[in-house]
Simulated assay, not measured.
Amino acid sequence: MTTTEFDAAEYLDSPEMIATYLKVAFEENDAALIRTALNDVARAKGMTSMAAESKITRQALYKALGPNGNMTLETLLNVLRAMGVRLSVSG
């Protein structure tokens, strides 16, 4: 039997799917999971276009979304805008 590694980025092919995926990640309140989900979406949309749309260099984007990334709020908002989603708060 042959197996392949699962890559969520391969399934993030619509704005609705992206929004749902990120919503679930944010609901978990786990910074590493959120960073991974943002990385998956960025790869699905293409890192080069994400870098251009977010006005962040590709290298900085890879670093921010990498396993040890710790992006600023400004970077997070730029990345979310480039992904076509908005951050929302509810109580």
Rank of each mutant, 00 (worst) to 15 (best):
T2P: 14
T2W: 08
T4G: 11
E5A: 14
E5D: 11
F6S: 11
F6A: 13
D7K: 11
D7F: 03
D7Y: 08
D7W: 09
A8H: 05
A8Q: 05
A8W: 06
A9G: 07
E10D: 13
E10G: 10
E10F: 06
Y11I: 00
Y11D: 08
L12N: 01
S14L: 02
S14Q: 06
S14C: 06
P15K: 01
P15V: 03
P15C: 01
E16S: 09
E16M: 02
E16T: 07
E16G: 02
M17Q: 12
M17A: 14
I18V: 02
I18M: 01
I18W: 01
A19R: 08
T20M: 06
Y21F: 15
Y21A: 10
Y21E: 12
Y21K: 12
K23A: 15
K23W: 12
K23G: 15
V24R: 13
V24G: 12
V24E: 15
A25Y: 02
A25T: 02
F26D: 02
F26A: 07
E28V: 01
E28I: 05
N29F: 12
N29P: 05
N29E: 13
D30R: 04
D30N: 15
D30K: 09
A32D: 13
A32K: 13
L33K: 11
R35E: 02
R35P: 05
R35Q: 07
T36S: 14
A37N: 06
A37Y: 04
A37E: 05
L38A: 02
L38N: 03
L38T: 00
D40H: 14
V41E: 03
A42Y: 04
A42G: 06
A42H: 08
R43V: 11
R43A: 08
R43Y: 03
A44R: 10
K45C: 08
G46W: 04
G46L: 02
M47K: 10
S49V: 15
S49Q: 15
S49P: 00
S49M: 14
M50E: 06
M50W: 07
A51Q: 06
A51H: 04
A52N: 12
A52P: 04
A52W: 05
S54A: 14
S54W: 04
S54D: 01
S54V: 08
K55F: 12
I56M: 13
I56N: 00
T57P: 03
T57A: 06
T57F: 00
R58F: 00
R58K: 13
Q59K: 09
Q59Y: 03
A60M: 12
Y62K: 07
Y62L: 08
A64I: 01
A64H: 09
A64G: 00
L65I: 03
L65E: 03
G66R: 07
G66I: 10
G66D: 10
G66F: 09
P67H: 12
N68K: 15
G69R: 10
G69W: 09
M71N: 11
M71T: 05
T72M: 07
E74P: 02
T75L: 00
T75I: 00
N78Y: 02
N78P: 00
N78A: 09
N78T: 00
L80E: 07
L80I: 07
R81M: 11
R81V: 12
R81D: 15
M83E: 04
M83V: 02
G84H: 12
G84D: 11
G84T: 11
R86E: 13
R86K: 15
R86P: 00
R86G: 07
R86S: 13
L87Y: 09
S88Y: 11
S90L: 01
S90K: 14
S90D: 12
G91R: 05
G91K: 10
G91D: 10
